[in-house]
Design a protein around this nucleic acid. Structure first.
Length: 256
DNA sequence: AAAACCTCCAACCGCCAAGCG
DNA sequence: TCGCTTGGCGGTTGGAGGTTT
């Protein structure tokens, strides 16, 4: 598909080309990835015969050329999932995108910034106005940390205390009416983003199975790529996969 | 009709962590 | 241990196209 907008002008005098990609460049990049596979991005410009930097090639592939990328408007359930994940993870776009099949981190980020940021702000203000009545706590989820570490294949590079990998109070400032996570808990060095990633799978799967039992859902399998839930056949049509009522508070007791 | 303003999103930029010699 | 390279991420920009005035 040709760029719908050819916005940026090219600097033809520089060695490394910038700006919008042409169909020809796309083809060269795609052929290169098809032949050599993803990765080794520093070699890609050379292999593909492109005057582009490695980052530009990588970005173009990940955000545009990669197969199975979904384009067009976000579906209602995708938006719903995005909202909930954002409340839990903050601006961790790549993590959020990893749970929305076919969507890239850039897509998610753009959608958030253009559609949901203002909506979220608005909701927050409304909540402040009616702050007198505290939200009702309806669900308590208490997974056992030892189960997570045993049951899940945590990646080897997880560090015990990596400040950049932690959800901190600063990036959960939007945690309000859905996930009420104490700052003490989320800033604990025991919980890294990698844990969160795996943890979400376990948490959602457990929760969905639990709910599914009650309402009579049947389940498919895990996706090969992300390891998360990928199929859920709903027997009745009254609930969606992540249909926690928006006003519920889900207390996550992540640690012992 | 056209100027001003708004929306959208591809692409760029800077930073960080991991890996390697 | 240190410095360099690479991959990856989130924030931001810029400009085409759409809408309003």
């Amino acid at each position: 598909m040709e760029n719908k907008r050819m916005r940026r002008s090219y600097d033809t005098t520089s060695v490394v080309r910038k700006g919008a990609w042409t169909a020809e460049e796309d083809m060269l990049l795609k052929n290169c990835i098809d032949k050599f596979g993803e990765g080794k991005w520093h070699l890609v410009p050379l292999r593909a015969g492109l005057n582009r930097c490695r980052k530009s090639c990588r970005l173009r592939w990940l955000n545009y050329l990669r197969p199975n990328i979904k384009r067009g408007d976000f579906a209602e359930d995708e938006v719903d999932l995005m909202l909930r994940l954002h409340k839990l993870l903050g601006n961790r776009w790549s993590l959020i995108a990893g749970r929305i099949p076919g969507r890239t981190a850039n897509d998610v980020k753009n959608y958030w910034n253009t559609h949901l940021k203002s909506r979220c702000k608005q909701q927050k203000e409304q909540l402040k106005e009616g702050e007198q009545s505290p939200p009702t706590m309806v669900t308590i989820i208490k997974p056992q940390p030892c189960t997570i570490s045993k049951a899940l294949n945590l990646r080897p590079h997880i560090t015990s205390h990596d400040p950049h990998n932690l959800i901190t109070s600063s990036n959960i400032d939007s945690v309000d009416n859905v996930f009420n996570i104490s700052k003490d808990i989320v800033s604990s060095p025991k919980l890294s983003i990698d844990n969160i990633d795996e943890y979400l799978d376990a948490l959602l799967e457990d929760r969905v199975k639990e709910i599914g039992h009650e309402v009579g859902w049947s389940f498919g399998g895990r996706s090969a790529e992300g390891g998360g839930l990928d199929v859920l056949e709903q027997v009745d049509d009254q609930n969606s996969l992540f249909d926690f009522p928006i006003d519920d508070v889900v207390m996550l007791d992540l640690l012992d």
